[in-house]
Computed example of a mutant assay.
Amino acid sequence: MSRHCRQLMLFIAMLTIGCLSLPRLAQAQSVSCANPTVNNVQFGTIDLTTGTVNVTGSIGWSCTSTGILGVLLSPQANIAMCLNLNTGTGGTQANPRLLSSGSNTLQYQLYADAATTQIWGSTATAGTPIPLGIAVAIPAGLILSTTVTGQTPFYATLPGGQTTAPVGTYNSTLAVTVGGSYTLNANTPLSSCTSGQHVLNAGSAAFTASATIQKACVVTANNVNLGTVPFTALNTTASNTLGATCTNGTPYFVGLAPSNGNTTGAGVMKGAISGNTDKVPYQLSSTPGPAGVVWGNTATSTTVGNGVSGTGSGLSQTLTVYATAASANYTPDSYSDTVTVNVNY
Rank of each mutant, 00 (worst) to 15 (best):
A206M: 09
A326S: 15
A272P: 02
S122M: 10
S181F: 06
N342Y: 14
T236I: 07
V199F: 06
C33I: 08
V38Y: 09
Y170E: 00
G267E: 04
N225M: 11
A115V: 03
G141K: 05
D113M: 09
R3L: 13
C82G: 13
P290Y: 06
A13N: 04
I46L: 15
S309T: 03
T89H: 04
T123L: 14
N222S: 07
T66D: 01
Q42Y: 07
G310K: 13
G275S: 09
G160C: 06
V219T: 11
L99D: 08
L132T: 06
T45A: 13
L106E: 11
V38Q: 07
Y282E: 05
I46S: 05
L234W: 00
G243V: 03
P36N: 00
G127V: 08
T237E: 13
V38N: 09
S2C: 07
V53G: 02
L184D: 08
V55P: 00
T87G: 03
T49D: 01
Y108H: 01
A186G: 13
V136G: 02
C217A: 14
L184E: 12
T66C: 02
S195P: 01
T147S: 06
T37P: 02
L158F: 04
I119F: 14
V343H: 08
Y252D: 05
V41Y: 09
P23G: 07
W295E: 03
V41T: 15
T236E: 05
Y170S: 01
T250A: 13
Q283D: 03
S210Y: 09
T318K: 15
Q162K: 08
V339H: 00
T164Q: 12
T146P: 07
G44K: 02
V294T: 14
V148W: 14
A156P: 12
T117G: 09
V293F: 00
L15C: 14
L10A: 10
A140K: 02
L319D: 01
G168E: 10
Y252V: 01
S32R: 06
P36Q: 04
T245L: 08
A209D: 07
G102D: 03
G289Q: 12
T236W: 02
A140N: 01
Q214Y: 04
Q317Y: 03
T147W: 11
T264C: 00
V219H: 03
S30R: 11
S21Y: 15
G203N: 03
Q214P: 02
I17W: 10
Y322M: 07
Q283L: 05
Y335L: 10
T232Q: 05
C19E: 06
L15Y: 02
T320I: 12
L190E: 12
A299N: 11
T89A: 05
Y111P: 03
A238N: 10
F253S: 07
G127P: 10
T183I: 02
P23F: 04
G102T: 13
M269L: 14
G127T: 08
A137T: 14
P251H: 00
M9C: 07
S100T: 10
C217S: 13
A206K: 09
Q109C: 11
L190N: 12
